[in-house]
Write a protein that binds this DNA or RNA. Structure first.
Length: 561
RNA sequence: GCGCCUGUAGCUCAAUAGGAUAGAGCAACGGACUUCUAAUCCGUAGGCUGGGGGUUCGACUCCCUCCGGGCGCGCCA
């Protein structure tokens, strides 16, 4: 329900509880939070509260009796929004709202347009979401796609919920992995040129490495043969790195994901940001020396063991960069940091939390969202996805097979917390098995009706609400639809608070479902002109919400299908 | 062995943060197009929520325990 109605009703309940006659003369020391829910079962009213159940222990009185007294108290005055209030076992109070409350929601949607559903729970807080951040040693695969979709949708949802959001991709372009990449491509180059050399044991074996080597042969011929020196390796490294990053960026763009910032690990060293923070932590005794290496005391935050930040060789670890990187995030003014990682990195969470603590920031201001693995199903069988062997399905291929919209929706339709299955055959089928088309179809149907209305010279705009007789919208299905539209803001907020983009996805499916039912049952354009106008107004509002929610997920809203 | 995630209809997943009769989609079966797009709608069937204990007005949800699945436990990133 819209905010004002919710607040008003809470106040009404609160007043009623405070004014109610008390048998046991109990004072309410701590007033319980009044919780209003929208019941699943429409027989339980439009809104419901469990306040009487919560109060029964405080008042030492049966909840049904309390509920009864509260309802009597509420009924003493006209609230303007309530049709009636009922009690139900074992002590719920169910509220039925007046119809004009619903009509106001339609007016609100039509006047606010895409601003409808916007919330301010974020309080303009600066929040940084870092996601994907795949090593630039190979192309993106399907598993990364899930992180990308979740991160991107979350950013949009948080922004709608009133946060000041920035997104970032962290490029690990510093450590040994980059050297291995350079050596891998060089080795492939030499093999292709006919040299009898063995491929490095720990090298990257994917076919993209071969493709890179071929590309270099085309551009530079065989001029690197016999020049097995650091300069050559450096060239191969930089070439491969640049090319892979470009491809990653391209794949992400075609997936509808664009970052506000690409942060290079290398710059942490070139700008000398690592050493100072390590020294500081050393002074503050969060880091100590042992066996010739520097160790960070992550056991302070429940980690299994302390972790090395600078090796015996004097070379800093990846972890050292991460300390500096996260400090830098705070220094840039972000109050909340969200990192989205694949579930295989979960062992890293505790040490990072310990870092945040040691740096002196609130441990809860740093949150990690672990995205569980995706199992890809093709023809009923599981498709292998080993990263090193190079036998994974690329995000690029997935997009070209099923399209951006379907791929994104499939990643977003379930909780990031659960291991999901991605069935390629269902995703490809343009049938009713596919929930994306189901939602888009609802949108297209609405567009089609509005178009037909225009052809018959019946046009509806936001101003027309004043002249309309919305009380004509009284069928169960119409009220259901409006109720769902009214719930939009709440879904955004919950989705933002618990970082669950899938709530928006399932909301969309439910909204589409209600619309489809309504569509089948009633004709929007019908002989009664006033009824037609009111119904057009309703579906127009539905269209606005559908489009906005789809936008949050990064899924297109086609006008025709 | 320790840690994180997970176990709900034949399958894929929900369940409003502890709420009312555990719900959707697919698959199965039976219906609905002369009408704004049938990529839709309606109906039938399908459940000891992995097992057992506990907490309370009330548990899929929280706690303990056991069993199963995924992932991780480097001076790799």
């Amino acid at each position: 329900m819209n905010k004002k109605v919710n607040e008003d009703l809470k106040q009404i309940i609160k007043d009623a509880v405070q004014n109610m006659p008390r048998k046991n003369k109990v004072n309410i020391e701590k007033f319980p939070n009044i919780i209003l829910t929208t019941p699943k079962n429409s027989e339980h009213g439009h809104l419901s509260t469990n306040i009487a159940l919560q109060l029964q222990n405080i008042f030492k009185e049966k909840s049904m009796i309390l509920a009864n007294i509260i309802v009597q108290e509420i009924q003493k005055k006209d609230t303007g929004i309530l049709e009636k209030a009922e009690i139900a076992e074992p002590g719920f109070i169910n509220f039925y709202l007046k119809n004009n409350v619903f009509f106001q929601i339609l007016n609100e949607i039509m006047s606010k347009k895409e601003q409808y559903g916007k919330s301010n729970i974020g309080n303009n807080k600066k929040i940084l979401i870092e996601f994907v951040s795949v090593n630039p040693t190979g192309p993106l695969h399907v598993g990364h796609g899930k992180c990308a979709a979740v991160g991107d949708a979350l950013a949009k949802i948080l922004s709608k919920a009133g946060y000041q959001v920035s997104t970032e991709y962290y490029i690990n372009d510093h450590g040994r992995q980059m050297d291995i990449l350079g050596k891998s491509v060089f080795a492939r180059y030499r093999i292709l040129s006919g040299e009898d050399v063995s491929f490095p044991e720990n090298g990257y074996k994917g076919d993209y490495i071969t493709a890179l080597a071929k590309e270099i042969i085309e551009k530079h011929n065989y001029r690197f043969i016999g020049k097995n020196n650091t300069e050559t390796i450096q060239f191969f490294k930089e070439y491969a790195h640049k090319k892979i990053i470009t491809d990653i960026r391209k794949d992400l763009v075609s997936f509808g994901v664009e970052f506000d910032n690409w942060f290079s690990e290398e710059t942490l060293y070139s700008d000398d940001k690592v050493r100072p923070v390590i020294n500081r932590l050393l002074e503050e005794k969060h880091i100590y020396q042992q066996d010739g290496a520097l160790w960070f005391k992550s056991t302070a935050c429940g980690d299994e063991k302390d972790r090395v930040v600078v090796r015996e060789s004097g070379e800093p670890t990846y972890f050292a960069s991460d300390i500096a990187y996260h400090e830098d995030k705070y220094k840039r003014g972000f109050e909340t940091l969200i990192d989205i990682w694949g579930a295989d990195h979960h062992g890293y969470v505790k040490r990072m939390k310990a870092v945040i603590d040691a740096l002196g920031y609130d441990i809860d201001s740093f949150q990690v969202l672990l995205v569980q693995f995706v199992t890809l199903i093709k023809e009923g069988k599981i498709v292998g996805m080993s990263t090193r062997g190079g036998e994974f399905v690329r995000l690029k291929d997935l997009i070209s097979e099923v399209g951006k919209d379907v791929a994104r929706y499939f990643f977003l339709m379930h909780s990031h917390d659960s291991h999901t299955e991605f069935d390629l055959d269902i995703a490809k089928s343009q049938s009713m098995e596919n929930p994306v088309f189901y939602i888009q179809y609802a949108y297209a149907r609405i567009c089609s009706i509005i178009e037909k209305g225009k052809n018959e010279k019946i046009d509806i705009s936001e101003e027309s609400g004043i002249d309309l007789d919305l009380s004509l919208l009284k069928s169960k299905e119409e009220i259901e639809l409006i109720k769902k539209l009214a719930n939009y803001r709440k879904i955004i907020e919950r989705s933002a608070i618990y970082w669950r983009p899938y709530l928006v996805a399932s909301y969309l499916h439910e909204l589409a479902s209600i619309f489809h039912k309504y569509y089948t049952e009633y004709k929007v354009i019908n002989p009664d002109i006033n009824l037609t106008k009111s119904r057009l107004y309703l579906i127009h509002a539905t269209k606005i919400v559908l489009k906005d929610a789809l936008k949050l997920l990064g899924v297109e809203a086609p006008e025709k299908m």
